[in-house]
Simulated assay, not measured.
Amino acid sequence: MFLLNYFEIIGTVAFAISGAVIGIEKKLDIFGITFLAIVTSVGGGIFRDIIIGNTPPTAFVNPTSSIISIFTALVVFFFYEKKSKFEKIIIISDALGLGVFTAIGCRTAIIRGADNAIFVIAMGLSTGVGGGMIRDILVENVPFVLKREIYALASIIGALCFFFFYSYFPEIISLYLCCAIIFIIRITSVKYNINLPAFKNWK
């Protein structure tokens, strides 16, 4: 349980950083930056909980993640310097958060009784990308999940791996493996500019 809590804290901080930095880049005030950090961290979990009938959502019952997000946003707000120094931090944080929360979403679905891959993957995907989608929509960015970048696909592959790993490995190992696979796929795709094909108007 300790390792799982530590795992979730890492994901919360990672997503809060990405949300706060994007808020700063969009020139939001301290409330907007903090709100964006919270939404990025807990938005996907809220969406997942509503779908699986876990109401009220965990984020409202246990405010720990929101408190961590607030603290993280304030640290970023007061120590932020230049975009160039934070671009890599945004990418790494977002990839780490995607991996962590996809894994947590898959685990939540399984312990709630899900026994088919489609539902587990859907819950992992919604938990992993939900907060980021809300964040991007709020600041009028096209969400990563809808772009050419390999983002949602990384989450889907990791979730599928988790579904199979869960039957053969201890829970915490499955979580770490899922997170690692997603993180590696995401970072590799960014580093080598690997994207999904997009429509091109040849006229």
Rank of each mutant, 00 (worst) to 15 (best):
2 F>M: 05
6 Y>I: 14
7 F>D: 00
15 F>D: 00
16 A>Y: 00
19 G>C: 05
19 G>V: 01
21 V>H: 03
22 I>H: 00
24 I>W: 02
24 I>P: 06
25 E>R: 14
31 F>L: 15
31 F>H: 08
32 G>S: 07
32 G>R: 09
34 T>H: 03
38 I>T: 05
41 S>L: 02
41 S>A: 15
42 V>H: 06
42 V>Q: 07
43 G>T: 04
45 G>I: 06
45 G>H: 02
49 D>R: 08
51 I>K: 09
53 G>N: 07
56 P>L: 10
59 A>T: 13
64 T>G: 00
68 I>K: 09
75 V>K: 10
77 F>Q: 07
78 F>Y: 14
80 Y>L: 04
81 E>K: 15
82 K>G: 09
84 S>T: 13
84 S>Q: 10
89 I>M: 12
89 I>P: 06
94 D>S: 05
94 D>A: 08
100 V>G: 03
102 T>E: 00
103 A>T: 02
103 A>P: 01
105 G>D: 02
110 I>L: 01
119 F>A: 06
124 G>Q: 10
125 L>M: 12
128 G>H: 05
128 G>V: 06
129 V>E: 04
130 G>N: 03
131 G>Q: 11
133 M>N: 06
137 I>H: 12
139 V>C: 14
139 V>N: 12
141 N>W: 14
141 N>E: 15
143 P>K: 12
147 K>H: 05
147 K>M: 08
149 E>N: 12
149 E>I: 11
151 Y>P: 00
154 A>S: 10
155 S>E: 00
157 I>D: 11
158 G>N: 04
159 A>R: 13
159 A>Q: 11
160 L>K: 09
163 F>G: 08
171 E>F: 10
173 I>S: 11
174 S>W: 03
175 L>T: 01
175 L>Q: 02
184 I>P: 06
188 T>W: 06
188 T>D: 09
188 T>S: 15
189 S>W: 07
190 V>W: 10
194 I>F: 10
195 N>Y: 10
196 L>N: 12
196 L>W: 13
197 P>G: 13
199 F>I: 15
202 W>P: 12
